[in-house]
Amino acid sequence: MIPLIYNEWLKMVRKKRIWVITLILLVLIPIFTYAQFRTIQQTVAEMGTSDWRALLQQQIIDQQNRLSSSRLPEEWRDWIKLSIQQQQYYLDHDINPTAPGAPTFVRKFIEESVSLFLPLLVVVLAADIVSSEHTAGTIKSLLTRPVQRWKVLLSKYLALLLSISVLMMITAILSYLISGVIFGYQGWNMPVLTGFQEQNGQLITSFVHLVPQWKYILMAYGLAWFTCVAVGTLSFMVSVLVRGTAASMGVMLAAVISGSLLAQLAPTWSMLKYFAFTHLRLTDYLSGKPILIEGMSLSFSILVLSVWSILAILIAFITFQRRDVLA
């Protein structure tokens, strides 16, 4: 199996797909970094003062005053306490929360890119992995070897998983290195709030806690990896079903984009929650951003993506195993 995976990896590298994607990241990350930098400058300008320490001090005092008021519900208290802890940490470690370091950029970048940008790159990687062999006719050279068809397909799938992982790593490394030039490389231990839950449309904060940023980034990348694998698996199936590379890429791009658009356009349409591509923003469950469609939770999203992926794998393997190679 290892030699087969190596073959597929070699094709991917020599087709220069990975390099094209690295190049895209190399162009886009500086742009995002600069955009972030502009936003921070704007915020600083609006605050009218560049003395963020004084501002933080004031915020902490305000929050403490609210705590001493007795009419506050219990979970709000915990929430405020956490918030004070977080701000105290900023003060103690001399971190300006509005002008954070590279790790914060890494975190924000993955949170924003998981819904559309990374899935699109994954589609570019995956959409032609089988269809290109049909288009080029090399499928005939592959399937007339003493190797079972399902093994050929499995080696392609595993090579895809490998390249998705490499894509995530390149994204993380490049966004850290590039944004650090402007923001500095500090901030791995900065506390970040997480543990939000939603029930009946209400944000439940009772499980909210602080985690160091590096831990948060690991979790966010894990979830983003899962999203990308799900998108990759679906593209993989389309690549088996559709013979042309252009067609299979088109189908997948349309699906990914409409998934992210539909969730915003028609959040009340509850059927949408069974559609795989409305579940790509897994990191939102970490950061506590409001979820658009009702009745979605992290475990539900993971379940939906898993079911779609398993079906896609089954369809891909059964089709590939049986189909006549005519082209």
Binding site: L10, K16, G137, T138, I139, K140, S141, T144
Partner: peptide, 11 residues
């Protein structure tokens, strides 16, 4: 060889 010798042109 079926029809054409099918090889990977980029290798």
């Amino acid at each position: 060889i079926v029809e054409n010798p099918e090889l990977y042109p980029y290798l």
